[in-house]
Simulated scan of single mutants.
Amino acid sequence: MVTIREVAKRAGVSVATVSRVLNKKGYVSPKTREKVEQSIHDLKYKPNDVARSLFKGKSKMIALLVPDIMNPFFPELARSVEDICNSYGYTFVLCNTDHSIEKELAYLNALQQKSVDGLIIVSSTLTGEHTKEINVPIISLDRTFDTNLSNVKSNNRQGARLAAEHLKVIDCKVIAHITGPENASNTEERKQGYLDVVKDEEWFSTDYIVSGDYNMQKAKDAIKKLLLEHPEIDGLFVGNDVMGAGALKAIEELEMQVPHDISIIGFDGISLGETTTPTLTTVAQPIYKMGSRAAELLIEQINDPDIPKKTVEFPVELIERQSTRKRR
């Protein structure tokens, strides 16, 4: 492997001069810079990233922490973050936390030791107390866990309203809601949107709200129990598409038919919803745009730590598929 000393020797300059050219710091005459750059080209010299990170205090590394890599929403989100990171010359690191505060804190500690330049975090368990000592920029994505951080998300409450209103339009008489994890900000926002539409209905009861924890199996079990106890339910707004797939399985096992007996709407708009039988009506988030904007915001803050924090909220749209009855 070619060393910086060999580059300096070939160019007839000091190692310090080569370092100034590489790091674009300090004055180097145009003629000398040209000689150094030609030597780098001729020798095919590749700077040592570890050494450069120690010198500059930068690693050109960005990490994304997600709670459940098995949920297809997060790989789709990660792809957009990775694309933007790569386009700006950053190495991308994906960390799966399994909804565990212990794993999240362990990752935060390890990533700081590796001089990560910035973090994008999806979390239901972290708080501002956990991140106040982190000395690199952080963007919260999809869920808000610290109001002092820049945040990128979709309009969860409006999306939930769209779902509940659509179920009413197609003449569902009793509409239940399957929620996500208790501490997730988007769980509460989606529940509030549902309540905006149904709380004043004569039939409404909080018994129609149960948790599926954004998990397919937990949602399936919860929905089977709910429908056995409340057979009058003929509409389900399910807090994400993974739970929507669980809902379809639960109803199949109960020997009911979708959408003849019950209509289902999910949330996220992941590709999974196009592969289920029947296909899943959903409130679609612009997943790629959300991840891309989070990465762009983070890089802006890495380059200028003094820029104001901001919240970016994307609109959502209802996509009708086979799991809901047709409008009359």
Rank of each mutant, 00 (worst) to 15 (best):
V2M: 09
V7F: 01
A8C: 00
K9C: 01
R10G: 05
S14G: 09
V15M: 09
A16H: 02
A16T: 01
T17H: 03
K24N: 04
G26I: 00
R33K: 14
K35F: 01
V36Q: 03
K44Q: 10
D49Q: 03
D49K: 00
D49A: 02
S53H: 00
F55E: 09
K56L: 07
K56C: 07
K60R: 15
K60Q: 13
L65Q: 08
L65R: 13
P67N: 05
N71W: 07
N71K: 10
P75K: 10
P75W: 15
E76P: 10
S80R: 06
V81G: 03
D83Y: 08
D83S: 04
N86I: 02
G89R: 08
F92N: 03
V93R: 00
L94I: 02
N96F: 08
I101C: 01
L105Y: 06
N109K: 15
Q113Y: 02
Q113F: 01
K114S: 12
D117T: 05
S123W: 03
E129R: 02
K132W: 01
E133M: 02
V136C: 15
P137Y: 13
I139N: 04
L149E: 11
S154G: 10
N155G: 12
N155Y: 11
Q158I: 12
R161P: 01
E165C: 01
H166D: 04
H166W: 11
L167S: 07
V169G: 10
D171A: 03
D171C: 12
I175N: 04
I178V: 14
T179A: 00
A184K: 06
N186R: 15
N186P: 13
V197H: 09
W203F: 11
W203I: 11
T206N: 14
Y208V: 10
N215M: 10
Q217S: 11
K218I: 04
K218G: 05
A222F: 00
A222M: 05
L227C: 04
E229D: 03
I233M: 06
G235W: 15
N240H: 10
V242K: 10
A245N: 15
A247H: 08
K249T: 13
E253V: 04
E253S: 12
E253I: 09
L254M: 15
V258D: 03
P259I: 03
S263A: 13
I264E: 12
G266N: 01
L272N: 05
G273K: 05
G273T: 12
E274Q: 07
E274K: 04
T276Y: 06
T279E: 12
T279D: 08
V283M: 09
V283I: 13
P286D: 14
Y288P: 02
S292W: 10
A295P: 07
D306E: 14
I307R: 13
P308E: 06
K309S: 09
V316A: 14
I319M: 11
T324G: 02
